[in-house]
Amino acid sequence: MTGERTVLVTGATGRVGGQVVAQLAEVGGVRVRALSRDPAAASAALGPRVEVVGGDLTMPGTLAAALDGVDAVFLVFPSVAADGAARESVDMLSRRARRIVYLSAHGVPDEPDQRAEPDGGIIASHAHLEGLIAASASEYTFLRASGFAANTLAWAGQIGRSDVLRWFSPDARRALVHEADLAAVGVRALTEDGHHRMAYHLTGPEQLTQVEQLAAIGDALNRSLRFEEIGAAEAGAELFPGLPGVVVAAIVAGHAAMVAHPEPVTDTVARLTGRPALPFAQWARDHIDDFTKPAG
Results as ranks from 00 to 15, higher is better:
E4H: 14
T10K: 06
A12Y: 08
T13S: 14
G14F: 04
V16S: 14
V20F: 05
Q23I: 07
A25E: 13
G28W: 00
G28V: 00
G29E: 03
V32R: 01
V32I: 13
D38E: 10
A45M: 06
R49K: 12
G61K: 09
G69N: 02
V70D: 09
V70A: 09
F74C: 04
F74V: 05
V76T: 15
P78I: 06
V80K: 13
D83P: 07
A85E: 10
A85R: 04
M92T: 15
M92D: 01
L93N: 07
L93G: 08
S94I: 03
R98C: 02
R98V: 10
G107Q: 01
P109Q: 03
P112K: 11
P112R: 09
A116M: 03
D119Y: 08
G120S: 12
G121M: 04
I123N: 02
A124M: 05
A127T: 05
H128L: 03
L129R: 09
E130N: 02
L132Q: 05
A135C: 02
R144N: 14
L153F: 07
A156N: 07
A156K: 10
G157P: 11
G160H: 14
S162H: 11
D163L: 06
R166C: 09
W167P: 02
F168I: 06
S169Q: 12
D171H: 14
D171R: 14
A172M: 06
H178M: 04
H178Q: 04
A183H: 08
V187F: 09
V187Q: 07
H195S: 13
H195N: 12
H195T: 11
Y200M: 09
E206P: 00
Q210N: 14
V211Q: 15
E212W: 10
G218Y: 03
D219M: 06
L225R: 05
R226M: 00
F227A: 12
A233T: 14
G236R: 13
P244R: 09
A250V: 00
I251K: 07
I251H: 08
G254F: 10
A257L: 12
V259N: 03
A260E: 15
A260F: 07
P276Y: 12
P276C: 08
A281P: 00
A281Q: 03
Q282R: 14
W283G: 03
R285L: 13
H287F: 09
D289F: 09
A295R: 09
